[in-house]
Amino acid sequence: MLDFSFKAIAITNEIDLNKIALQCGIPKKFTWEEPLILRGNILQSILGKDVDNSKSVLLFSFGSVVFINHSNDEEIKVLLKYLQSFEPEMDLKNIGRYSDDYSLHISETETLELTDEYVVVPEYEPFYPELISTVLAKSVALEKTEEQLGVIHDRLETMIDRLEKGKLRIGNKELARTTAKILRHDYNTLAYIMILDKPDITWASSNASEFYDKMIDFFELNDRHKILKSKTEILYNIIDGFSTISHSIRGLFVEWIVVILILIEIVITISQIAGWIP
Rank of each mutant, 00 (worst) to 15 (best):
residue 80 L to D: 04
residue 42 I to S: 01
residue 180 A to P: 00
residue 64 S to Y: 06
residue 257 I to L: 15
residue 48 G to D: 02
residue 40 G to N: 07
residue 15 I to C: 10
residue 240 D to G: 14
residue 107 S to D: 14
residue 59 L to S: 05
residue 221 L to T: 07
residue 58 L to M: 13
residue 260 I to W: 15
residue 155 R to N: 10
residue 68 I to E: 04
residue 116 D to Q: 06
residue 115 T to H: 05
residue 222 N to H: 12
residue 122 P to L: 03
residue 170 I to H: 04
residue 163 L to W: 03
residue 168 L to H: 11
residue 255 E to D: 05
residue 99 S to I: 14
residue 178 T to W: 04
residue 226 K to D: 13
residue 67 F to T: 01
residue 258 V to S: 06
residue 116 D to Y: 02
residue 134 T to V: 11
residue 108 E to T: 05
residue 40 G to V: 01
residue 119 V to Y: 00
residue 44 Q to V: 02
residue 59 L to I: 10
residue 247 H to N: 15
residue 105 H to P: 03
residue 271 S to E: 12
residue 261 L to K: 05
residue 43 L to V: 08
residue 4 F to I: 00
residue 167 K to E: 15
residue 140 V to E: 00
residue 34 E to V: 11
residue 146 E to A: 08
residue 274 A to F: 08
residue 252 L to G: 10
residue 152 I to E: 00
residue 69 N to A: 03
residue 90 M to H: 01
residue 125 E to M: 03
residue 183 L to C: 04
residue 260 I to F: 14
residue 187 Y to V: 08
residue 9 I to N: 03
residue 112 L to A: 02
residue 59 L to T: 05
residue 132 I to A: 01
residue 246 S to Y: 09
residue 26 I to H: 01
residue 132 I to D: 00
residue 153 H to K: 10
residue 255 E to I: 03
residue 114 L to F: 02
residue 270 I to P: 00
residue 134 T to N: 14
residue 53 N to D: 05
residue 219 F to Y: 15
residue 80 L to K: 03
residue 78 V to Q: 08
residue 82 Y to E: 02
residue 118 Y to I: 08
residue 243 S to C: 07
residue 7 K to R: 12
residue 16 D to Q: 10
residue 30 F to I: 12
residue 67 F to Y: 11
residue 36 L to Y: 10
residue 208 A to F: 07
residue 9 I to G: 04
residue 87 E to G: 02
residue 170 I to N: 06
residue 123 E to H: 07
residue 234 I to G: 05
residue 34 E to M: 11
residue 241 G to P: 05
residue 168 L to W: 12
residue 248 S to A: 10
residue 117 E to R: 15
residue 47 L to A: 09
residue 115 T to K: 06
residue 182 I to K: 13
residue 181 K to Y: 12
residue 26 I to Y: 01
